[in-house]
Structure formats: C-alpha cells, structure tokens
C-alpha cells in the first residue's frame, strides 16, 4: 500500500474522560483520504513540544469517508501525546501514513469478538465497522480500570454488541476482560488490542478454545517504515519489525509463553 506524508487540519478535538481525547482531522490540501485498512497507524510529528524529537505512532481509530475525516484516539502518556491533545481546530499535524499491515478481514466469517483495553480500543472502532459492513456478527469486549475510563462505547455500539469488564466493577462484569462471561461462548475469531498482559491473557483464552486470534502490538518505534529495526518482536521467524510485518500478528506467530 502506498505511503504518504500529508498535512492534516484538526477539525475537532473532543475531551473524553480521564487522560483521553479524540482528534478528528482532514487532509489540509482538501484531497480524499488515501486507502486505509483497519489496524493501520500513522506516525505523527509533534511540532512545538520542547522534548519530542521523533514522530509518535498512533493507531487509526476511524475513517469517516462521508466527512473525509481521520480519527485518532489518544491517551496522554507524556509530552508528545499531551501536546497532540492540546491542539486546536485549525492546527496542522503532519503524518506519515498509512503504516503497518492492519487486521485481516477478508477471510473472517460468523461471530467475531473484538477485545480492547484502555487506549487499545482505538483501532477496534474502524475494524468493527468494516467487519459489520462485511456482514459479520460483531461483538466488543472492552476492559478498563473503572467506568470513567471506558472509551467511545456509544460509537462502538453502532457496529456491534458491547460487553464490558471493569477492574472495580463500576460497569459490566467485575474483574479482567479474560474473566468476562463472553468467554463461555463460542467465537469464530478474536481480534485484540491493549496492554501486553491483557493481550497475553486473551491469547491464552483463545488458545484454550482453539479460536483464531489476532493481536495488535505497540512496540516502541523510531522510523515506522521498516528502516531502523528498533521495533522488533521475536516471532517464529526470528526478530521482525512490528511497523511493517505488524502491528497485527496471529498469536501463533509470536513466542508468547503460557
């Protein structure tokens, strides 16, 4: 897929709960958004932050073809993301995009479970839309520490049934996503993005029930285009770049131990 380096104008910056925000952007030159697969990411440049030198990898949260908008769901994790979250309508952000391989969707059928934790929910919104458009039965399982950190639940509900787990039990099932009652059901495929311990837990559940499972990794990146070899993950084929061979991997490609 061809990669672009494009300026985007911020149209909306919506504060979500806690440390989260949602940026909606459109190409500054008025062009149509390029072809984008669910699960791909952008490398956004953070201008004007005193400490941020490299671009920041951020998942593509949603592609709105009607308004020609690209959405980024961002968690304030440090100076770079804080600076992005302080941008105002009209500000311009430069992005290298779309990067990575995205989630495989063509061969998916039946009932699928999309599991997200924290900001890992980001790529699942667009994924759910694509899968629903393909006629699948889409179900989300979203985990958070507490009710206030549940992100974009109403948006997710447009594309599927939403199940919730919170650590403190303030919404949905109490406990971890891996303890949610949805695991009693049979799924045709699982997609997952979230903190590493959560993805490992989901992978374990998937293996137990022999369900095919794809996870999206967030290894630290410098270039985002396969040039620096900084973002490697150990796989059955040796060290591979998450930015080009991923960020999505089938769990059996990874060397995660049970």
């Amino acid at each position: 897929m061809k990669k672009y380096i494009l300026d985007f104008v911020v149209r909306h910056n919506e504060k979500l709960g806690g440390r989260f925000g949602l940026l909606k952007l459109t190409p500054a030159n008025g062009s149509q958004l390029p072809e984008i697969a669910a699960g791909q990411f952008v490398q956004v440049s953070v201008d004007g932050s005193k400490t941020t030198f490299l671009r920041r990898p951020i998942s593509i949260n949603f592609v709105d073809k009607v308004t020609n908008e690209l959405w980024l769901l961002i968690r304030n994790a440090g100076n770079g993301t804080e600076h992005l979250l302080s941008s105002k309508p009209g500000d311009v952000l430069n992005m290298v995009m779309p990067l990575g391989n995205g989630f495989p969707v063509e061969d998916a059928t039946g009932r699928v479970l999309l599991v997200g934790g924290g900001v890992g929910t980001a790529p699942l919104l667009y994924l759910g839309k694509i899968l629903r458009d393909n006629g699948l039965d889409v179900n989300y399982l979203i985990g958070a520490r507490t009710k206030d950190e549940l992100l974009m639940i109403d948006n997710l509900k447009e594309y599927g049934t939403v199940y919730i787990s919170t650590d403190d039990g303030s919404a949905g099932d109490p406990g971890l996503v891996t303890q949610n009652k949805v695991w009693d059901e049979k799924w045709d495929r699982i997609y997952c993005c979230g903190p590493a311990p959560m993805m490992k837990g989901v992978a374990r559940n998937a293996r137990k029930s022999s369900t095919q499972c794809f996870v999206s990794l967030e290894n630290m990146m410098a270039c985002g285009v396969g040039a620096c070899l900084c973002c490697v993950e150990r796989t059955t084929k040796g060290n591979v770049c998450v930015c080009t061979e991923g960020p999505v991997f089938e769990i059996n490609q990874l060397t995660w131990q049970d």
């Binding site: 400490t51 941020t52 030198f53 490299l54 290894n219 630290m220 990146m221 410098a222 620096c228 070899l229 900084c230 973002c231 490697v232 993950e233 150990r234 060290n239």
Partner: peptide
Amino acid sequence: YPRMAETPS
C-alpha cells in the same frame, strides 16, 4: 527489544 529510547534532540 527494547532497542531504542528517545533522548534530548
């Protein structure tokens, strides 16, 4: 991994 860290400039 990890193989990189951002540092000032």
